[in-house]
Design a protein around this nucleic acid. Structure first.
Length: 523
DNA sequence: GACAGCATGACTCAAATT
DNA sequence: AATTTGAGTCATGCTGTC
């Protein structure tokens, strides 16, 4: 569990798609032939789609995964535009057959010289001293041990294999109806408290990060913990083999939220963000106590989602309860409790249940009151933004790159920690959410500079270099990529990490890796 | 250990209504 | 244009039982 694999042991794995057992054992980190090649930093997003297919989004989609335009066009020609799955399969086949990676778009490879130029002396000139103090003793960051970040995941080579791996898993699943996993998959901890939660003493205070993962920059990635099997393994392998930290927020607040985080932040001396949030439903919503029947034993709410229970439902429940006195029969209790759990209903009157209000969402998630209110956002949107929001709890950062910002969970948390935000590049597709963050930014009198972008796929090496040239690198890169295709509530398109939205995870990785390369280059 | 039963889930879509 | 409503599934992990 120490996530110490450097990747070097795995360089010589023979990729054999026919052998399922071997596929299971792939740890796709280092592709030495790719890493040592000398290549300039070129964002793959900048490949323009001049001669592309009629649907530029489709091209962008696959460009974002790291395939070259040439191959994508070819694959689309062969399969037609409609069937993205077979396009992907073709691309993977080309990629697997491809021995000379030059033909694939080499998006961001650093030269050997660039790899060795990180040392503490140079760092301290670039970073605020207090910030460095905070991290100088942490983890694998000891003064003499010079961090020598090796970009171990060499773009497309690793990508191909991983994609193939996922695809194979998926195929097997389809074929057999179930899979017999080996024991090398990540297990969720129980209790799900990660390295420790604010109200507890720290369980783990030290870990050894893989060398390639060590900052700068620091990164912090988030998504739902209960993703389909194999998803977190893939995420972890992409993010430099850092082991995820799984945390359920029910251990420090009144509502459950099971999430996984892959980050390279120091974990010693964590402290709670004050004031502590209410720990129980009763504390969070004291007015409900009066109406709470003794047979409803809930003390914590379930995960706040993007949809809420209907008025009809609470009406049906009220009618069902009114038939009985103060002590409804067990089967009625059971029915009511089931609906309460399913829809996170709370008691607001005699026999009256209600879904939570957006205000209550904000409070339970630790956002300022009215954070998502007004300014053109509808109530439906508000629930959607809040249900999708990124709730987090720990610090660090001055120049921030925030991908999939949502309503600014990371920004708000950093601000509450008293950390000044100098330059924030925030990428968020939803205009409503961008408005929310912008308005928060203005209301909290931020002195820094907020740069908003809409599309993560448009953020290429050139733009990053521009930003980083003007203010000298990012300290922290946070992001929670879309969970739509991972979340259990999705009955329609729970397609895993390759799903339409959730595959944007690869853009998180792409951009993180680009930033690492550029920072090495700019030393 | 095998097994059944149970609880859980940053959801999507379309149709109807306001 | 926003809101309300209901219908729609299943992977995963936990617990208790044998």
């Amino acid at each position: 569990m120490d996530g110490n694999a450097s990747g070097e042991d795995y360089e010589n794995i023979d990729w054999d798609t026919e052998d399922e057992l071997e596929i299971q054992n792939i740890v796709p980190s280092t592709c030495s032939n790719l890493v040592t090649r000398n290549a300039s930093i070129v964002g793959n997003g900048e490949a323009s789609s001049s001669a592309g297919p009629s649907n530029p989004n489709l091209l962008q989609h696959f460009l974002g995964m790291g395939f070259s335009e040439q191959l994508i066009v070819k694959a689309i020609k062969e399969n037609g535009e409609a069937n993205t799955e077979s396009i992907l399969e073709s691309l993977l086949t080309y990629a697997a057959l491809e021995d000379s990676p030059d033909e694939l778009n080499p998006c961001h490879l650093n030269s050997p010289q660039q790899q060795q130029c990180v040392d503490n002396g140079q760092l301290s000139s670039d970073y605020d001293e207090s910030f460095l103090d905070d991290i100088s003793e942490s983890d694998s960051w000891s003064g003499s041990e010079v961090a020598k970040p090796k970009i171990s995941i060499g773009a497309n080579g690793g990508l191909k294999k991983r994609k193939l791996y996922e695809l194979e898993l998926w195929k097997r699943k389809k074929r057999k109806g179930l899979i017999n996993e080996e024991d090398d998959v990540l297990r969720l901890p129980n209790p799900m408290i990660g390295f420790g939660v604010p109200t507890d003493t720290m369980v783990v205070t030290h870990r050894t990060l893989p060398e390639a993962a060590i900052g700068p920059p620091f990164f912090y990635y988030e998504n739902v913990a209960l993703a389909p099997k194999g998803v977190w393994d893939t995420i972890s392998r992409f993010l430099y083999d850092v082991q995820p930290e799984f945390v359920d927020s029910k251990y420090f607040c009144a509502t459950a939220r099971k999430r996984g985080y892959v980050h390279n932040l120091p974990i010693h001396n964590r402290f709670p963000l004050l004031p502590l949030p209410p720990r129980t439903i009763n504390d969070a919503l004291p007015l409900t106590k009066r109406w709470w029947p003794e047979w409803d034993k809930r003390t914590k709410l379930n995960c706040l989602q993007t949809v809420i229970g209907s008025a009809k439902l609470t009406d049906r429940i009220r009618k069902a309860l009114e038939k009985w006195g103060d002590d409804p029969p067990l089967h009625v209790q059971k029915y009511v409790i089931e609906e309460c759990r399913k829809w996170n209903l709370v008691w607001v009157g005699k026999n009256k249940l209600a879904p939570l209000e957006p205000d209550e969402f904000e409070m339970l998630l630790g956002f300022p009151r009215n954070h998502t209110r007004g300014g053109g956002i509808s109530r439906t949107d508000r629930y959607k933004s809040l249900g999708n929001s990124f709730q987090d709890m720990f610090p660090n950062g001055l120049n921030l790159l925030s991908l999939f910002s949502g309503i600014g969970g990371a920004e708000v948390a950093l601000h509450r920690l008293g950390i000044p935000l100098k330059n924030v590049v925030s990428v968020e597709i939803s205009e409503a959410n961008r408005d929310i963050v912008r308005s928060w930014w203005e209301q909290t009198n931020q002195k820094g500079n907020l740069i908003h972008l809409a599309d993560v796929q448009q953020l290429n090496g050139d733009r990053l270099e521009q930003f980083m040239g003007s203010f000298g690198g990012f300290d922290l890169i946070v992001g929670g990529s879309p969970c739509n295709n991972l979340a259990g509530s999705n009955r329609v398109s729970r397609d895993g990490l390759e799903g339409e939205q959730s595959s944007l995870f690869y853009d998180y990785f792409r951009i993180l890796d680009l930033v690492k390369c550029i920072m090495n280059k700019q030393q």
